[in-house]
Design a protein around this nucleic acid. Sequence first.
DNA 1: CATAAAACATACTAGCCGGTATTTTTTTAT
DNA 2: ATAAAAAAATACCGGCTAGTATGTTTTATG
Lengths: 200, 200
Amino acid sequence: MEQRQKSELTKALILNESFKLFYENGFKTTSVDKIMKATKLTKGAFYHHYKSKKELGVEVISTHIQKRVYEGMIKPLYEEGNALELLENTFSGRLKSFSIYDKAHGCPMNNFINEIADEEQAYQIALKRIIEEWKAALVHLLERGQQEGSIIMTIAPKAIAIYLISAFEGVRGIRKLYNDDQILNDYMSGLSLYLTQLKA
Amino acid sequence: MEQRQKSELTKALILNESFKLFYENGFKTTSVDKIMKATKLTKGAFYHHYKSKKELGVEVISTHIQKRVYEGMIKPLYEEGNALELLENTFSGRLKSFSIYDKAHGCPMNNFINEIADEEQAYQIALKRIIEEWKAALVHLLERGQQEGSIIMTIAPKAIAIYLISAFEGVRGIRKLYNDDQILNDYMSGLSLYLTQLKA
DNA sequence: CATAAAACATACTAGCCGGTATTTTTTTAT
DNA sequence: ATAAAAAAATACCGGCTAGTATGTTTTATG
């Protein structure tokens, strides 16, 4: 195989396996050994491609997790149609699309935020970038709704955006405590009601 | 010193130091050695009072963290006065009362939930109990508001309660990414707006 | 086809981890 | 005063940790 291609494939393999293990067991408790066992390669290969576990952590966040949030929660916001309906469909639809596995392990981004964001600026910056992109998309959509006359003018888009993100990330964590979806249903009722009250 | 008193004092010391270290550095990465170094006692003392680190974890949750959430977020909800004002004062007031240290490290309960709730039922149960108590207090207050005619009848108290809790816990995590309070101010604006729209 | 560089493997280190076994010190009950 | 029991200290274990040093194999290039 071509050298460059081989290198990229190996890095992608490490990235995929480490994302999965971080998601299932947390960042701190997932060792480089465990990751490389999953890839069926060795520690030598890891430290050839990454200079430290921290570097890997940042890369998992800024590629894998970023893409995941973008595809699931940001991209849909730029579609056409009524702003409030788009919001409800995106937030509720995402929750409904989750498997039991996803529900049990919460939001990968939120897990990272709560586990390691307060102890290393590099993680902080990478995670912040995702939140800011998400917030910008929400603000954009809310402003569009206001311009189109479908959302009341008395609200501050930025505040609503933060409140929407907070509640979503919050409930993804709280769901971990339960073995059923009642909490998600309650959340979705709460969200629905919230959005209804923004209707012009 | 009396034996019983001494034992209780030692357990309280272990509990205090471990809460602090769990809060600052996470549960998994705080070792029994580190905790006992903080208490200036030894490992022998620890394993005399606790049969495992897991047992300590559960006790920290069901005593220390439970009390903290109760005092800060639940007890105030049972005070007299307008329901919506009580809600806003409790949620916003709590955020405003936090030190930089508290803001940087997020909510101890939420940290536990996101770090270890998905891997051990004992933690899950202890944490769930706190959330349920909080939820019950919120539902009670919202129902009182409805009975008194200060909150619209078209909302489902349980759904609102979950949405309020989710957003609060969510923002405590997201705040970790920032070094200023703008995100908290945005959250408080969002909350205020939300509550205004529940007004009868 | 030789040489260099990249990709990966093997073997190792010092230190930390939760937990245990054993001993010493302190308190209690008689 | 003394024996028993509780509290705490000491010393240890096997296994895991991030990271390093040094090999071997594969690919690229002249």
